[in-house]
Simulated scan of single mutants.
Amino acid sequence: MTYAAVAMQMTARSVAPGATRDTQRESMLRHLTDVTGQIRGATAFITQYGGAPVRLAVLPEYLFTSYPIRTGISAFAEVAAWDMRGPEYDALGKAAQDLNLFLAGNAYERDPHFPGLYFQTSFIVAPSGEIVLRYRRINSMFAPTPHDVWSKYLDIYGLDGVFPVARTEIGNLAAIASEEILYPEIARAHALRGAEIFVHSSSEIGGPRRTHKMIAKQARAFENLAYVVSANTAGIDGYASADGNSMVVDWKGQVLAEAGAGETYTAFADIDLDGLRTARRKPGMTNYLARQRTEVFAAAYAAATVHPAGSLLDGDIARVPDRAHFIETQESIISRLAKEGLI
């Protein structure tokens, strides 16, 4: 099976000063209408260009809100975070149906089990309009994550809800959020659950020289024998950074297509699903996934604690932190590791 995937490089829009939940929702839904039109134009061009039918489109990180730079966690959750069954997802479902493709993206999301918090969530919506994958970012510097409420999160969602893989007609899909591409454990955990294609929504500094994230995208691809479809922002409104270098990487780590700066859909390429599966099932030195000796590393990880789990839990209650909590937690971790002679 061969089809085309496109990384839509688009400008993220920030939450307007003084926005209310109603005005912000109206703004996001209007933006989604614009995004749908851009994807429609991109898929028409790619098909006319002679490519395979587009079955997967990936949107950049926090496209509809940017990141909450000066807003408290509860305030941002109230104004801008999506509800798990909210109208934003309804609109995305309608867009995926109209476009007849899988639509992947990233947004901040509220969860009724954890009032006052939000999680940065990567999602995939099927052509049926159904949400087939919801992945919450594990590694984040200034935002709550499932690991911060770990025991309660596992009780509710289980490990399958932490590392979900959507088994679809275009392959087994999993999501990696933003800088998590730098953490090989995230991709490997998904790959060990069958993931073949990683959708990566990002907002990062691009440029002509290879950045850490660019290098990591290629590494995550070849070490897991998986495709990476990475969509970067084309800047954030009001800012000049976080632009360029959206790309599609194949399971050999080869960059098949890469965008320059600005809004563009030039990062598109064919996904050869049969070729990937053949490579995964062939014995040899380059079958890095099949050569894993997981028990060895499981023991080493089990013996080490770096970032503590459940830092936002008081018993079964998740507390809402201020942003200083995250720096203070990291400072205490660094101090402890230094005392233990580990850094």
Score class of each variant (00 low, 15 high):
56 L>V: 02
33 T>N: 05
102 F>K: 00
38 Q>I: 06
165 V>F: 08
42 A>L: 09
115 P>C: 00
68 P>T: 12
31 H>K: 02
77 A>G: 02
89 Y>A: 09
124 I>T: 11
38 Q>G: 01
32 L>R: 04
142 F>S: 11
130 E>M: 12
84 M>H: 13
82 W>R: 02
74 S>P: 00
28 M>T: 15
66 S>C: 09
60 P>S: 05
110 R>W: 04
61 E>S: 15
132 V>M: 01
95 A>F: 14
133 L>M: 01
148 D>C: 11
82 W>M: 04
89 Y>T: 12
124 I>P: 15
138 I>S: 10
57 A>D: 05
70 R>T: 15
80 A>L: 07
151 S>K: 13
58 V>M: 03
30 R>M: 08
140 S>F: 08
67 Y>T: 13
105 G>S: 08
155 D>I: 07
161 G>V: 09
147 H>T: 14
30 R>K: 10
33 T>M: 03
53 P>Y: 04
52 A>M: 06
81 A>T: 01
132 V>N: 00
69 I>G: 07
140 S>E: 10
160 D>Q: 07
132 V>L: 05
90 D>L: 12
133 L>P: 00
51 G>V: 14
77 A>W: 04
58 V>P: 00
110 R>N: 06
81 A>K: 02
148 D>V: 13
144 P>D: 07
57 A>S: 08
119 F>L: 02
57 A>C: 06
120 Q>D: 12
63 L>P: 01
35 V>A: 04
148 D>Q: 06
95 A>M: 11
50 G>N: 06
115 P>Y: 00
28 M>L: 09
134 R>I: 12
30 R>E: 11
91 A>F: 05
154 L>D: 02
81 A>D: 01
77 A>T: 00
35 V>L: 07
146 P>M: 06
165 V>G: 01
127 P>S: 13
147 H>K: 10
158 G>F: 06
106 N>H: 15
93 G>H: 05
166 A>L: 02
129 G>E: 04
55 R>P: 03
137 R>M: 12
125 V>P: 08
98 D>H: 07
118 Y>T: 02
86 G>P: 03
96 A>C: 08
73 I>N: 02
40 R>H: 14
165 V>Q: 05
153 Y>H: 03
54 V>K: 06
33 T>H: 07
140 S>T: 15
111 D>T: 13
31 H>R: 08
47 T>W: 10
60 P>C: 06
78 E>F: 06
34 D>S: 07
28 M>R: 14
135 Y>S: 06
109 E>A: 14
72 G>W: 09
109 E>L: 15
66 S>A: 14
149 V>F: 01
30 R>I: 10
128 S>Y: 11
73 I>P: 04
42 A>H: 09
53 P>S: 11
164 P>Q: 05
140 S>G: 15
85 R>F: 08
27 S>W: 12
139 N>P: 07
46 I>V: 13
139 N>F: 12
47 T>Q: 10
92 L>E: 08
67 Y>Q: 08
154 L>Y: 05
145 T>S: 14
